[in-house]
């Protein structure tokens, strides 16, 4: 059941919080699809909601947009408690559901006029103005008179985006905005979304990693209904990469040289040699490492820079212990 009856008035922890989700939980029967997820989205951010299929991304977005009622937890959109006043919350959200369901028999402008009326835009003049603005922002002016069922998937996706933009809401929620599109269409949608940055606050879900790197300032990683990671894509990667080296000498002398670069350097003995792996903040730090090692009189056999990808982080966070100990699954796109 929905948690009701609490009389808490939410005071935003930070003035510019547009969306706040606390301990959000959804049970389907005995299965827990979303498990106590909490996060906050600030004004102007583009936040990526990242996770494998079935992680609970859509369920979470559907609770925020009011399509589903939470089993427990709180949602605040702007100043509105979305659990107690779902309609008030929905007024501030432009939502593009997964797969962008539209009425195929309608023309684009008919559909958007209908949606404008539903969203409470009053008067012909106001609806026309909103229609023109959103057609332009979503770049679908050229298909305004076409029947939706005859549009390509890329265009349909943009019509969905135009719908989300209609009432000029502060918060856009886009569920898998580029799924099923070809690379050109994906580029077009991403360019559009990037264009909204600053003006709108955007929460988008995806299971495509490059998308997050391309679009989002911050990532929330969900797995099995839980939030397992959060941060800027760069932060999550833990710097830009690092270096692996193999050399002759004492383990402790390597530690002394390398710890200034990375306090958590990993060292181990491999026969007569010492292997080390350390993370570095800057690309040119590799040269510094080489210089430092040489200066200490240690002899290197191998020095190999590497880059951590977000994919590694994602795989590490969303793979079970049991899976990890087995073979690594190569399912990522």
């Amino acid at each position: 059941m929905v948690a009701r009856g609490t009389t808490t008035v939410y005071k935003p922890a930070q003035e510019d919080t547009v969306l706040e989700v606390a301990d959000l939980t959804k049970n389907y029967g005995s299965r827990r699809a979303v498990d106590a997820i909490s996060f906050r989205v600030r004004k102007g951010e583009i936040v990526g909601f990242l996770g494998p299929n079935g992680a609970g991304k859509s369920t979470t977005l559907r609770m925020i947009t009011g399509f589903l009622a939470p089993s427990a937890g709180r949602i605040r959109v702007g100043e509105v408690d979305a659990v107690r006043d779902p309609i008030g919350a929905r007024r501030q959200i432009g939502y593009m559901p997964e797969g962008v369901p539209l009425y195929p028999e309608m023309r684009v402008h008919e559909y958007l006029r209908y949606r404008g009326e539903l969203k409470g835009i009053r008067g012909r003049g106001a609806i026309d103005a909103a229609l023109e603005r959103s057609l332009r922002s979503a770049q679908v002016e050229d298909v305004r008179d076409r029947i939706i069922g005859q549009l390509s998937k890329g265009y349909r996706q943009r019509v969905g985006l135009a719908d989300a933009l209609l009432a000029d809401p502060p918060l856009l929620i886009l569920d898998e905005p580029t799924s099923g599109l070809d690379p050109n269409q994906i580029r077009a949608i991403r360019a559009l979304v990037r264009g909204f940055a600053g003006d709108k606050t955007i929460l988008l879900s995806t299971h495509i990693l490059p998308e997050v790197e391309a679009l989002c300032g911050r990532v929330l990683i969900v797995h099995k209904g839980r939030l397992v990671g959060e941060g800027a894509p760069g932060e999550l990667r833990g710097g830009r990469g690092g270096v692996r080296l193999l050399g002759r000498g004492e383990l402790d002398s390597y530690r002394a040289v390398l710890e200034p670069f990375d306090a958590s350097v990993k060292l181990r003995r491999e026969g007569e040699l010492v292997a080390a792996e350390l993370h570095l903040e800057a690309d040119d730090a590799v040269e510094e490492v080489f210089r430092a090692v040489a200066k200490a009189g240690l002899v290197l056999r191998e020095l190999r820079p590497f880059k951590t990808s977000l994919e590694d982080v994602f795989a590490a966070l969303t793979t079970d212990e049991s899976e990890r100990s087995g073979q690594s699954s190569g399912e990522e796109e």
Binding site: F67, I87, G88, Y95, P97, P101, L102, L118, G120
Partner: peptide, 14 residues
Amino acid sequence: ASNTLEPLMTAPVS
């Protein structure tokens, strides 16, 4: 069946 119930029920209407 066509999932259009979702945009309808997430519009600000009762």
